[in-house]
Design a protein around this nucleic acid. Sequence first.
RNA 1: GCGGGCGUGGCGAAAUUGGUAGACGUACCAGACUUAGGAUCUGGCGCUGCAAGGCAUGGGGGUUCGAGUCCCUCCGCCCGCACCA
Length: 995
Amino acid sequence: MTEYNHREIEKKWQKFWEDNQTYKTKIDPSKPKYYVLDMFPYPSGAGLHVGHPLGYIASDIISRYKRLKGFNVLHPMGFDSFGLPAEQYAIQTGQHPAITTEQNINTFISQLKNIGFSYDWSRKIRTSDPNYYKWTQWIFMQLFNHYYDRTADKALPISHLVEQFAQGGSAAVNAVCDEDITEFSAEEWKAMSEKEQQLVLLKYRFTFPEESYVNWCPGLGTVLSNDEVKDGVSERGGFPVERKLMKQWAMRITAYADRLLNGLDTIDWPEPLKEQQRNWIGRSQGASVKFAVEGQDKLIEVFTTRVDTIYGVSFMVLAPEHEWATELTTADQQADVEAYIKWAASRSEVDRMAEKKVSGVFTGSYCINPFSGEKVPIYLADYVLAGYGTGAVMGVPSGDQRDWNFATNFGLPIIPILDTQKDTDQQADNTKEGHYINSGIINGMTYQEATDTLIKWLEERKLGKGKVQYRLRNAVFSRQRYWGEPVPAYFKDGVPYLIDEADLPLELPKIDKYLPTETGEPPLGRAEGWKYKGEYDYELSTMPGWAGSSWYWYRYMDPQNNEAFASKEAIDYWQRIDFYLGGSEHATGHLLYSRFWNKFLKDLGLVPHEEFAAKLVNQGMIQGVSEFAYCLKKESFIFKETLKGKELVIPTLHGEEGIITLTDEIQELFFSADMIDELKRKYPSFEFYVQRLPVNHIVNNEANIGNMIFRNSFRYRDSIFVVKNGWWNAGGANPEFSNSDLKAAKFLTYSEVEKMSKSKLNVINPDDIVEKYGADTLRMYEMFLGPLTDAKPWNTNGISGTSNFLRKFWRLFFEDQTGKSKLVDAEPTADELKVLHRTIKRVEEDIERYSFNTVVSTFMIGVNELSDLKCHKKAILKEMVILLSPYAPHITEELWTEALKYPKGTLSAVKYPEGKSHPEAKFPVFEPKYLVESSFEYPIQINGKVRANIAFPVDMSKEDIEQGVLANDTVQKWLEGKAPKKVVVVPKRIVNVVL
RNA sequence: GCGGGCGUGGCGAAAUUGGUAGACGUACCAGACUUAGGAUCUGGCGCUGCAAGGCAUGGGGGUUCGAGUCCCUCCGCCCGCACCA
C-alpha cells in the first residue's frame, strides 16, 4: 500500500468487523459495564443527512474510548419505526407501511455502517416489530392494572385497591384519581354491579379511556399531545389544531408529578433541559378557596397562589367552557352569555393568543367572598383557561395586571390591599411587601403571617385548603392511525378490559386502505372480523409514537427475550444508561414520558433505578445553509421585459406607487442583492412581489466555466450563479466577464442557515462526504466543527484540514512513493516522549469533559510536532495509533496491522471477547515524567502574600526559576509590562514580586 | 412579560482554577519544489505603526498587581415558557 486510500481501507475494515462480529457484546461480570446510547432515529425516507451522525460519532468515540479503558460497553442502535410519514405514504400508494419502513431502515443501516460505528448490530430493535411491541403492550397492561397509592408513595396493583374498597370503602384509600370521585362505603362498593365497580376503578388506573378535550388536528386526522402542538398548529406538518371533546385513552402521568420534579436533582442532565421539564410540570404552591353562589346551592372553587389578596377580590371569572357557565346565567343575561360562549369556542388557540383585547361577559349571578361576606359579580372570560386549576379565578385587580385590565374594562372596583401598593388606579402592583389594609382579619399582618392565618381559617371551616397545583396534565394516549401499536384492550358492556396476556402480541391486522372509515372511526375500523374472541370490539385507536420509545433502552439489554422485556440477569448487569445522547427537542416529550414509565417499572420492582439515564448530553443541530434567490412573482412578470432599463413603477400593497430604474441587473427574473436591499428600503411592501426561490447548489461549492473555477456557486436552470456578496476566480480580483455564460454570475443569491430538510434543498448526504474524503475524515471533521452542544451550520470548507491531517499521519508510517515502511525501533527521545505524553493527557482530559473538538486540535498539534521531529519510532507511533482509534477507527486499524505488524485485531480490547487482550492494546497511561517540562505553575508572592499562580512557558527551565534567574524574556516582558516593578523568584517554588 | 444562555480575527473556534488572548483549522499573501496539482514543504497573517511601541475579547464603569473569565449597567443576538391565576 502506498498512499492513504480511504475507500479501500474503510471497506476492508468494515467487512472485517462484520465478519468477526468485533463489536458483539456479551455480559461479562469480570469487567465494569458502560452503557452508551443514542436516541434512536425515525427511519425517514430521506435517509441520513450530515446532522444525524454528529451525536452518533460522539457517542461512538465515547464507546471506543471506554472499551480501551477496559469497560464492557453496550452500544446498540435501533429504529423508532412507527410513525406518520410511512402511514401517509401508505395512504397515497397503498403500500403497507411495514414495507416502506423496512426499506428505509436498510438504507439507514447501510449509511451508518459506512461511517464505521461500533454498534452491536445483533441487538438492533424496531418498535414496529411485533416481538418488540408485544412488550410495549405488556407494559400498557401493567399500567392498566396499577394505580398510584399516596400512602405507599408508589404504584400498587389494582387488586390492592379492590381489597381496600371492600374493607373500608373509598375513605380507606389515599390514591391519585380523577377529581370527580364520589364517596362510597364498603357496603355500597359490594353492592355495586360489575360494570359500576369497573367504572370506579377506571378513575384510578394509570391508563384509562375518558371523554376529554383534546388537541384534534383535522389535517392529520388524529389527536396530538400537548408537546406535539406548537403555537396552535401541529409540530409535524403545521396544520391547525382545534379543541374537541373525544373519548381517548389517557396516561395518569400527573401521579408522578412530584417524583418527576424531584428526580431532576439527582441526574446529570443539561440545566436548560431540566428547567424546561420543571416548567412543563409547573408546580405552584397556593390555596383553594370556595366561594358560595348567591341564591344557589353551589360552591365555586378557585385556585390562587396569592390567597393573601383575598380581600381585594372584586369579581369572579369562569372559563367560558366551565360546566356551570349556563346554570349561573340569569334570564336577562342569557342571550349575551350564549353569544359569548359561542364566540369564544370559535376562536382558535392562535387567535386567542394573538388578540390581547379584554373580553368577557357578566352572568348576572353573584358569589360571596367567604372572608368579607361581600357579594361579587360572576363573569365569563376567555383569559381564564378551562384546563388549568378549577377553571375559575378570583379577580384581584389591585394585585394582578390581567385582573386589573379586566376590572378597568368592565368598571369594577379596584381595592388596594397593601400599604405599599402604588398607583393601583394606574396599574396593578403585585408586591408582597408591606402590611395589609382593607383586609379584615389580616389587617396589619405581613405576607407570610397573612397566608398562614387565611389557610388555617379556611381549613377549619372546610372552605378551602393549602394546595399544590401542577400545570402538567395527563397525557393523551390514543392516535386515530393505523401505523402504531394496537391497544391490547377490548370493550364489554361499554367497559374496557385487557386481553389475555397469552394473546400478546396483539398484532396489527391487515386492512385494505389506511384512511379512517366513512363513519369517522380510525383505520383499524376497516379490519374485517377483527374482534376479541370473535365477540368483543377491540380498541380501534393505536398508541402514540412515544409509547415504543419510553422503555426501549431495556430491550437492547436482551433483545430476543420472549419471556420478559429483558431478563433479570441482563437488567442487573447493565442497570441503566450511563451516557445518553440526543437532541433537546425531546425535553417535554420522549424524555419526560420515559422518566414516567421508568419510575412506574421501578415501583413494580422490575428495574433498579428511579432514573433511566444518569448522564445526558444534547448535541446541537447541524443546520443546512439554504441558498436561494429572489425573483419576481408570476403576477409581477410583466415588469421584467417591458420596463427593463426604464424607470419601473412598482405598485405597492397600499395603493401608492414607487419608481425604480431597472438596469441590466434584472435578468431571468432574479434580483441582485443590492437591488433587493434598495427595493426593500424604498418600498417596505416590495417583499410582496418577490418570492424566495430555493436553489440547489453544486455539492462541493465549485463550478467550472470554461477554464475558470468558481467557488461557492450554484447551478440553476443551466446558469451558474455565484453565492453571496461577491465572486472571484483563482486570481482573486473581480474580473470582467465577456463570456456570455458568465453574465448570470452577476446575480447574487442569499443564504440562510436553517434546519436541514429535503424541501429546503440544503441537505448534505454523509455518503457523498465519505466517498470523497472517507469516513474517518468525516468523523474527525464533524467533531472539529465546534462544541458538540452548539448548533452550527454545515460548511464543507474546512474539511481539507482534517483530511490533510490523516494523510500526514499516514506519512509518518510510510515512504510516500515506494510504500516502504518508515518505522524504526529506536529509543524515543525526551522531546518525542513529551509530545506523546502531552497528547495522551489532553486527549484523555478532553474526552472526559466531552470537549471533542479540542481533541482533534490536540491530535493535529501532536502529529505536526512528530513530523517536525521526523519521528518514525514504533514506540511513539503505536501509542498515537491507539489514541486516535476512537476518532478514526479505519485508518488506525490499518496502520496497526500494516505498519506496526502486530497480529490482526489486537488494536482494541474488544477484539478478544474471551477477556484476553494484547498487553499493548490498552489506552496509554498518563506518565507525568515528561510533562513537567512543558509548563510550570508557580505561586506568586506580592509583598509577602500569595496572590496568584503563574503558568510559566514551556521553554523556561525549572532550575532557572528556582535559582531566581528569569531566563525567559517573554515572562520578564510580561511581568514588567504590568504593575510589579521587580520579580524575585525564591526557592520552594514561590515567586516573589516586589512592588 | 418571565426564565436560561451567549457576544473573542475574514470564517469555524481555543484559552480546564482570574495569569503570555486568538492555540488548531480554514481563507488569504509570499516563496520553494514541480510530473502544473484541489499535492507537499517553508515563511507571513487581530488592528495600528518604518520601528520601538500603542490599541484590541459588543459599549461604558467597577473589583484586582493582573479580567475574555468576577460585579454593575447599557446594547445586540439566540433558546425555552407564556393570559398557569
